[in-house]
């Protein structure tokens, strides 16, 4: 396997969890809800995914457990912000703090244990093609899921009636309510979808990226996913590009470290976070680009009048 091929393969595995978590949050934000708890849902997905896979021996059960954990966490958030109209920013933070604590508690028994790795698929002939084969046809199943999910979300949001309803709810919840749509129900569903995606992203980390459980192993990826949604100006296509850009930055840091150039490893490790800040600044500085697509009701509470 050539060096370039290896780099590309690791970039794909580093980008996939970012894309998975971000595409879920994109739908949530399109429905007018800001869930800052991505990091918390993701880390819970990681620990539950690892625990289920380790206990059962099946990585697919791990994936299912990760998704379930993400949905469970997101429903807590949905109940508070939608049914009890609590402050979304504060509740999202609470979700992250709770998730980090709870995952540490659950994961304590699993620290240092060998994980179950999600296998890479292998299609005869196709995967054997040099260079292109392993990259296009030799990934694990979730890589394809993340890309399919992004395409599906783009299609549903902009080409179907359901997508129109979601965007209407996010754009103007009073009008959507007046038209007879159940704003709260739509948002519950979107939040749960976001939770499922974040949980899946977490499970990807503990089953495919580094098949083991390390405390706080999400390392801010949930927050970077949130920044990616802003960076993408709420468009799935740009989101995919952004996720792969960030994955590349993440991996380049590791590779430069490996080359043994005299740059301290901590500077390279801080690159993804610094690049996130720069990306936010660049994209937010361009007001027209952001304004066109920002869901107008984002973060605003809605209480239906009866």
């Amino acid at each position: 396997m050539g060096a370039l091929e290896a780099v590309i393969l690791t970039i794909i595995t580093a980008s996939t969890p970012l894309l998975l978590a971000a595409v879920g949050e994109l739908v949530v934000e399109r429905s007018g809800v800001l869930n800052l708890g991505v990091e918390g849902m993701m880390v819970m997905g990681a620990v539950c995914g690892f625990a289920a896979a380790y206990t059962s021996g099946s990585p697919y059960l791990g994936i299912a457990a990760g998704i379930t954990a993400g949905i469970g966490m997101s429903l807590l958030f949905a109940f508070l912000t939608q049914s009890l109209v609590s402050n979304q920013v504060a509740t999202g933070l609470a979700l992250t703090l709770l998730g980090l604590g709870l995952s540490g508690l659950i994961g304590e028994a699993f620290t240092g244990l060998p994980g179950v790795k999600l296998p890479k698929i292998w299609i005869p002939v196709l995967t054997d093609i040099p260079f292109i084969g392993p990259i296009l046809f030799g990934q694990d199943i979730l890589v394809y899921v993340s890309i399919a999910l992004t395409i599906a979300v783009a299609h549903v949001l902009f080409k179907t009636r359901i997508g129109l309803v979601i965007r209407a709810v996010g754009g103007n919840h009073h009008s959507a309510h007046a038209l007879g749509y159940n704003v709260i129900a739509v948002r519950y569903a979107c939040i749960a979808f976001g939770g499922a995606c974040a949980g899946l992203a977490g499970a990807y980390l503990s089953l495919a990226y580094t098949p083991q459980w390390i405390e706080n192993m999400t390392a801010g990826r949930g927050w970077i996913a949130l920044a990616l949604v802003v960076f993408s100006t709420w468009l799935p296509r740009r989101l995919a590009i952004g996720a792969y850009l960030f994955g590349t930055v993440w991996i380049m840091g590791l590779y430069v470290q490996g080359l043994g150039i005299g740059i301290p490893s901590q500077f390279l490790s801080s690159l993804p976070y610094l690049v996130t800040i720069v990306a936010l600044v660049v994209i937010s500085g361009n007001r027209t680009l952001t304004k066109v697509n920002t869901p107008a009701c984002i973060g605003q509470p809605f209480v239906p009048d009866r």
Partner: peptide, 13 residues
Amino acid sequence: RFGANEILTSLML
């Protein structure tokens, strides 16, 4: 200056 979301930038820092 740029309207960058302070939640995300302060956390990244």
